[in-house]
Each structure stands twice: as structure tokens, then as C-alpha cells.
Computed example of a mutant assay.
Amino acid sequence: MEVFHNDSILIKNIKKSDKKSFKLLFDRYYKKLVDYTTSYTNDTQEAEDIVQQTFIILWTKRQKLSTEKSIKSYLYRITHNTYIDTYRKQKREDIFFNELKEQALTERITEDPEILEKRIIKLKDVIERLPEKCREILHMNKFEGLKYKEISEQLDISIKTVESHMYVAYKKIREAFRDDELFLIFIYKFVHK
């Protein structure tokens, strides 16, 4: 009961944007949450990313925190939901890249699966290095299948802004594959289908 009491004091302070209390709460639960998440991911780095995301969410929603409910349960719930979201996102990406591979092999873009695998890794890397907003919009469009209008509504930005981010994404992909024209034409056809 003492821990919960201390937690509720920390939450009262966090609601007032007290960073010291936030740090205390972070130090109290970070390692436990990472261990918990690692049991799902089997990857400590990924677990750490998820837990950091949990605390970002907590800080963002600090005004709405309840001092009556257990913050520990709330943290575990956010962490679990963040893990599920990450897992779903990863699955959608895997499906996209697997379809891309299958299509490339079907269209005989390359006879060598190893070369194709290298191209896919390069494409993933190019996408990973895109500016954050650009990457998020490309992700929503290509991996989640959202239309530009849906993206603009979800992110509360204009369709023109969505188009401009997509343009930047395609430009970076084009630059990365400028010496691989056949694969570039194929990517263009695939992502515009």
C-alpha cells in the first residue's frame, strides 16, 4: 500500500508537469517494464524502445492521469498496447515486403533470390532513414493501405502536405536505386498499384 501511496503522490506531481517525479516513476518501473516486454519480444533493444514509448505516452497524457487508480497497472497496460501496435505494424511491413519479393520473382526482376534480398534490405534501410513524418506517412499509405485523404484527416494536415511527404519519400527511394533501373521501375509499379 505504501508503494501505491508513493505512486499517487508522484502522479499528483506529474500532473503538474513535475519532471523530477516523472524521473522517479521512470526509474521505479523502467527495468520491470523492459523485462516484461522482453518476455514478448525476445529482443531487449526493441523492448526498451517500446517502454520508452510508454513513458512518452504517459507524459503526453499526464493531465488525464488518475490518482485513484494504480499507475503500475496503467503502465503495464500502455506497454502491452504499445507492444501489440508495434507487432501489428511489423507484421504489415513483413507482408508488404514479402509481397514485393514474390512479385519481383514472378516478374523475374532477378533470378537470384540473394540479390533480391539485398535490394529489399536496402529499400527497408532507405525507408528507415526517411525524415520521421515522411516515414510515418509512407507507412500509413503503403503498409496500412490508407488513402491520402484518410492520412490527412488522421494527422490533421492537408492532402497537399501528405502528397509532398510522399514525393520526398519516392525521391529518396529513386535516388537510392538510380543505378538499378529495372528494380526502380518495378518498385514504382508495385507501390502505385
Rank of each mutant, 00 (worst) to 15 (best):
E99V: 01
E114L: 04
N81H: 06
L184D: 01
W59D: 08
Y30C: 03
S66H: 04
S66N: 10
R119E: 12
T110C: 00
E150I: 00
R77E: 07
D125W: 12
K19V: 07
L116P: 03
K133L: 08
K19H: 09
L65F: 04
Q154K: 12
K149D: 13
E114C: 04
M1T: 07
K91I: 13
K32A: 08
D85G: 12
T82Y: 05
D179T: 03
F55H: 01
R119V: 03
S66L: 05
R129N: 15
E132H: 11
D18V: 09
S39A: 08
R119S: 10
H80I: 14
L184P: 03
D35F: 01
N6Y: 11
R174S: 14
R108T: 12
T41K: 12
A47Q: 08
D43W: 11
E144D: 09
K149W: 07
E102W: 05
F26D: 06
V168L: 15
K64F: 10
E102V: 06
F55A: 02
A176N: 13
K69H: 11
Q63C: 03
K124E: 14
I137M: 09
K23M: 14
L130H: 10
L58M: 12
R88E: 15
Q63V: 06
I14N: 11
E48S: 13
R77V: 05
D112W: 00
H80D: 10
E181Y: 06
I120G: 08
T54D: 06
K147Y: 03
T110E: 03
T54S: 03
L155T: 00
P113H: 01
E48W: 09
L123D: 09
I14Q: 06
D179H: 10
Q90S: 15
K32D: 06
I151A: 05
K147M: 02
I11T: 11
E48K: 13
K15Y: 01
Q63E: 13
I84T: 12
S164H: 13
Y74I: 00
E132K: 14
L138T: 09
E181Q: 12
T161V: 05
Y76T: 02
K124R: 15
Y167D: 09
E46C: 14
Y148E: 15
L10V: 08
F55D: 01
D180A: 01
T110A: 04
T44M: 13
A176M: 12
I14C: 10
Y76E: 00
L155I: 00
V191N: 02
V3K: 11
L138Q: 06
D35Q: 04
K149A: 07
R129H: 15
Q154G: 08
R135C: 08
E163S: 14
S39P: 05
M166W: 12
I84G: 07
L58Y: 04
F190Q: 05
Q45Y: 15
F22I: 11
T41F: 04
R28K: 11
K69F: 05
R178S: 15
V168A: 07
Q103T: 09
